[in-house]
């Protein structure tokens, strides 16, 4: 069933926790739940759109110059989302900053164009892109939720901890060391779970 192209991206081939690609935005833009999901959605748009276009024109792209062509396609969509965010979500854009144009060098997007969309049909490429996009966005959002919970005592700006915690929260999590520590812990949990599966 073709649906496995979609589901494999969420769990079995999760871009961040299994394949370990696209780390820069995952650590830099997940200071709050809104920023994490915002970055995930922006990258998802580019990933799905570039997968669609690459698979549509794959028969007309000569093998030797395929990478520059992929890069031009990807950077077109990155420029679109860059200007859309700047116009309609200025607060989010100011937090994500340089990481919006940097979606263009996210290894995940070029990797899917090269490894999947260039060899598969439009519908399959859409499913593959959407699955990887959902897997990427969910992990980014999860990291954003955890970091915001510890560093501010809120989730999506809604207070969920007692007022006493919010006065002196664990600010460590909002800084760079907290991001590295969190992804280390998440990855070790994933390692533990996948090791258990391999044994049984």
């Amino acid at each position: 069933m073709k649906l496995k192209y979609f589901t494999s991206g969420i769990v079995k081939e999760n871009p961040l926790l299994i394949l370990m690609i696209g780390l820069c935005p995952a650590l830099a833009t997940t200071v709050s739940a809104r920023d994490g999901f915002g970055m995930g959605i922006a990258a998802s748009f580019v990933l799905i759109a570039s997968n669609l276009v690459v698979s549509l024109i794959r028969r007309y792209v000569p093998n030797s110059i395929r990478i520059p062509i992929f890069i031009i396609i990807i950077s077109t969509f990155v420029t679109i989302i860059d200007y859309v965010l700047q116009a309609y979500q200025p607060a989010l854009y100011s937090v994500l900053g340089v990481f919006v144009p940097l979606i263009v060098v996210n290894c995940l997007i070029l990797g899917r164009a090269e490894a999947f969309a260039y060899h598969h049909g439009v519908w399959d490429s859409f499913l593959d892109g959407a699955g990887k996009a959902v897997g990427f966005t969910l992990v980014l959002g999860l990291m954003g939720i955890i970091r915001e919970l510890f560093a501010a005592g809120t989730v999506f700006g809604v207070a969920v901890t007692p007022a006493g915690y919010r006065e002196q929260p664990m600010l460590f999590m909002v800084f760079a060391p907290g991001a590295f520590l969190l992804i280390g812990i998440l990855k070790s949990i994933v390692n533990r779970l996948t090791a258990g599966k391999a044994r049984s």
Binding site: M20, P177, L181, I183, G184, K187, S188, I189
Partner: peptide, 22 residues
């Protein structure tokens, strides 16, 4: 320990180095 070896322990080490740079 097995679930920490490889990437996870590298991330934790990076966290400590980055704490120093903070």
């Amino acid at each position: 320990s097995r679930s920490l070896s490889g990437y996870p322990i590298a991330f934790v080490a990076a966290s400590l180095v980055s704490l120093a740079f903070l």
